[in-house]
Simulated scan of single mutants.
Amino acid sequence: MTDTAAAPAPRIAGAKPDAPPFVLGSQSPTRRHMLEAAGVPVHAADRPGVDEDEVKAAFRADGAGADDVAEALAEMKAQRVAERYGGCLVMGADQMLEVDGAWLDKPRTRDQAAQTLRTLSGKTHRLIACAVVVKDGGRIWHHIDSAKLTVRPLSAGFIDSYLDTVGAAAFDSVGAYQLEGVGAQLFTQVQGDYFTVLGLPLLPLTDLLRNHGVLPS
């Protein structure tokens, strides 16, 4: 479904007048907020409609790594949305969480979120974030990055209290946390780029957008 609630983003001062519109191939509120807070004009945000569970199962059966899955899903999402936005720069993005050699998925229920937190408790896990930009069916750019996060040992009482506090936001991220909020209380150490943890290699993306005149240079 296309995001029709918001008007197309205005051109910003210093951008090239003929720069292609930038489209987000996702309806993730976190990614859109991150982009708009950084001054990136988002022309539209559209749901890609990719069956992530099916793709992950196929890659798992082939013995692929989490990085390969993140890149493949990001490109699938971008290509799917780009079919509806000719001439635009369309970005797809994906994030994978790997712990003890296993991949975790976004929780869909409170019980699943609690299980995710129990799994991460006292361990270091890896977050992989990949973004792919396509235009008119061709991939023109991609970037992949990872970060390591160490979760302190979490008591059952803390997990319950935390989930009471964050509510449905626990279902918005693969680890059931948002580092930019109360989720910071889960960790003893974070190694890597902050924006990668949030789900998008933002700084390399802004370089690309400057090169295409979407952002001022």
Results as ranks from 00 to 15, higher is better:
residue 84 R to K: 14
residue 215 L to R: 07
residue 202 L to G: 03
residue 61 A to F: 03
residue 39 G to V: 08
residue 182 V to Q: 12
residue 195 F to M: 01
residue 149 L to I: 13
residue 84 R to N: 05
residue 63 G to R: 07
residue 68 D to P: 01
residue 197 V to P: 03
residue 103 W to Q: 09
residue 145 D to Y: 01
residue 202 L to F: 08
residue 187 F to T: 08
residue 114 A to Y: 00
residue 168 A to M: 08
residue 73 L to M: 05
residue 20 P to R: 09
residue 66 A to I: 05
residue 10 P to D: 10
residue 107 P to T: 12
residue 10 P to K: 04
residue 58 A to W: 01
residue 210 R to S: 07
residue 196 T to M: 01
residue 60 R to E: 08
residue 138 G to D: 10
residue 160 D to G: 15
residue 139 R to D: 00
residue 190 V to Q: 10
residue 152 R to T: 00
residue 22 F to C: 09
residue 141 W to D: 01
residue 201 P to W: 15
residue 86 G to I: 06
residue 191 Q to K: 14
residue 199 G to R: 05
residue 194 Y to A: 11
residue 174 V to K: 05
residue 199 G to I: 14
residue 142 H to G: 01
residue 86 G to F: 07
residue 83 E to S: 07
residue 122 G to V: 15
residue 13 A to M: 01
residue 100 D to N: 12
residue 91 M to L: 15
residue 210 R to T: 11
residue 20 P to F: 11
residue 39 G to K: 14
residue 189 Q to P: 00
residue 132 V to D: 02
residue 85 Y to W: 15
residue 121 S to Q: 03
residue 104 L to V: 07
residue 7 A to M: 13
residue 212 H to Y: 15
residue 215 L to G: 02
residue 28 S to A: 06
residue 51 D to W: 12
residue 149 L to S: 07
residue 152 R to D: 05
residue 124 T to E: 11
residue 20 P to V: 09
residue 23 V to F: 04
residue 89 L to W: 11
residue 2 T to Q: 10
residue 102 A to M: 12
residue 4 T to K: 11
residue 214 V to N: 00
residue 78 A to G: 13
residue 188 T to L: 08
residue 107 P to I: 11
residue 7 A to T: 13
residue 86 G to Y: 03
residue 77 K to R: 01
residue 39 G to E: 14
residue 128 I to K: 07
residue 106 K to Y: 11
